[in-house]
Design a protein around this nucleic acid. Structure first.
Lengths: 330, 330
DNA sequence: CACTCATGAGAAAACGTTTTCTCGAAAATT
DNA sequence: AATTTTCGAGAAAACGTTTTCTCATGAGTG
């Protein structure tokens, strides 16, 4: 029923091998080339990618596993990755773990079964260990989250420095007691927390730290607990854009004003952030550079698997807006 | 080098066919089953999906082509589709056309070459025609956008009614001159526009209509033009969540207050919308139902390709908040 | 002018599975 | 007890390509 390369060959009066050669752009007689192309058009031939991948032993596919597809940071990186991939004639398989290690494990296995050319991964903490131990036939680049082991290439934000930058910013603006909310599931949360605590200690600021589980309503609960205590912070720091939104919703629900009642800062920049509290003060991540660097590292390693593993640490930029203009007590 | 089913068979001392049977869960002797599983574990065997798909002639993959992955409406639907797919043991290929017909055409071709089991598509206007003419070996369900032709199943919002509902809401709240911004690339934009115009005419409201091209900054430009004219509207309607945000940013840039200077309503509900202008009044789409219905229709048609094509029209709900509380002139 | 070498095309093998076909043994039926 | 049916397992074919191998032709070289 379905038309295969043999049917095209018969119509064009050439061998299947020649059709294959024409289709993959190898040198053939121009007359034959035309005959084959005409036959392809007239038969409506569509190559079977499964067969092609099986025989040729390359899939021309890269796997991209992100932790939360609703997080605009990851969709932004995905778009960059996809664009670059398609320029190079590669397909992208995009998977979303939702911070669930079981789901992540399933996808890691999928990547092996798909025999992907390479993989870009934003691992959960559990996944980080797993992927380090895993034997893969393809290169892996970690994004957003990475460990110490250096078994794989990685590209991450300078999380401690950026968290410290936010704390300093709050200090400059008069805040003295800051609570930080960090994702419990990611290494990024841990790094940002460390930077946060170091900076706050250096500046002699009071701190509270909350490890927020991934899931709806979690951040809201944490904020409510923080702000209803007798000795509440004068500033809140959220370790990513999704959490930042949750913080603001929680504060609104409590009837608290930003920045008058409490200053708010966070990570990631999204469009709506300009519309709230005189603009949200955030660390903007270089998403374009992150995606591009990850792809470059992947290609480099495809060229030469032997190069030593590299860790690229990128800097973000502080966008200082109204949400950190805390009312001065004096 | 890489371990195949034959290697497993050799280790387990059975035939490759038996290994295949064990792996696909068909009836085998329990003792053999155990031998095979042990061999699978000891060899670290990973099935080759390309080979499996080639021979078995089913890919267990559904293609999902959305128009804008940054639009939270589509990411939300994607998550629903993915969850259902994985419950059924199907993979999802997620593709993003970015409203570009050329890119869409490429993905449509990809779906054929991948020999997907079925496809869910949010087509551009160009793609709508193309997919109607296209001969596919798999069922197609259109979401969010659909035409009149009824060649394919589809599930859409009742766009005219919902747009009319927004206009009525604005009228109830005292607005008399409303400008609508509609996506130029989608049939959804057209339908919402029609409902908008009908309702406004019925209520004797003044209207302006703008077809906004897809792309950064476009909506902002349109809003600036509208609001800087001498006779400016007292209400703005944005035909999706992304555009709604752009409208608000543009208004903020112009120094205009919502809802005092102008009321704002729109489509889609996102978390941040509660934080702005006393909450944004919007039509919330039943994303869960849309995704679920699309999958159900796909499965129904896989069961029986002969059933007549269906169009499911779902209703959204009006979320009335502060952004439509326009200052009364009297 | 004979010989090697490059070029391009067809025949056939190969990719790693699943499926069909075949057969023997055990279970069920008469 | 003889026959049929069912069941499970191995051998081999098949899926639709690309790649390797082989060979013929024509160009380049001594």
């Amino acid at each position: 029923m379905t038309v295969g390369i043999k049917d095209v060959a018969r119509v064009a009066n050439v061998s299947p091998a020649t059709v294959s050669r024409v289709l993959s752009g190898r040198a053939v007689d121009p007359a034959m080339h035309e005959r084959v192309m005409a036959a392809v058009r007239s038969t409506g031939y569509r190559p079977n990618l499964a067969a092609r991948r099986l025989r040729s032993r390359h899939t021309n596919t890269i796997g991209l596993i992100v932790a939360d597809i609703r997080n605009p940071f990851f969709t932004a990186v995905s778009r960059v990755v996809e664009d670059i991939a398609y320029e190079r004639g590669l397909r992208v398989i995009l998977c979303n773990t939702d911070e669930d290690p079981a789901r992540e494990a399933m996808y890691l296995q999928l990547m092996q079964e798909e025999r992907v050319t390479g993989m870009i991964l934003a691992p959960t903490r559990a996944g980080l260990d797993k992927v380090a131990r895993m034997e893969t036939d393809f290169p892996v680049v970690l994004i957003d989250r990475a460990g110490e082991g250096m078994v794989h290439d990685s590209v991450v934000l300078d999380n401690p420095a950026m968290a410290a930058r936010l704390v300093e910013h709050l200090h400059e603006r008069g805040c003295r007691h800051v609570a930080g909310l960090f994702g419990a599931a990611s290494s990024t949360g841990r790094e940002r927390r460390a930077g946060f605590e170091n900076a706050a200690e250096r500046l002699a600021m009071r701190t509270q730290v909350v490890a927020v589980p991934h899931g709806p309503g979690e951040a809201e609960r944490c904020v409510a607990a923080l702000m209803q205590a007798e000795d509440r912070p004068d500033a809140l720091l959220a370790s990513n854009g999704v959490m930042l939104m949750a913080v603001l919703r929680a504060l609104a629900a409590l009837g608290l004003k930003v920045p008058d009642d409490v200053a708010v800062v966070g990570f990631d920049r999204e469009g709506w952030m300009d519309l709230v509290a005189g603009g949200l003060s955030v660390i903007e991540q270089p998403v374009e550079a992150i995606g591009r660097t990850a792809m470059t590292m992947l290609f480099d390693r495809l060229d030469d698997a032997a190069i030593p593993s590299r860790k690229v640490v990128l800097s973000g930029t502080l966008v200082a807006r109204g949400s950190s203009l805390h009312r001065q007590e004096a």
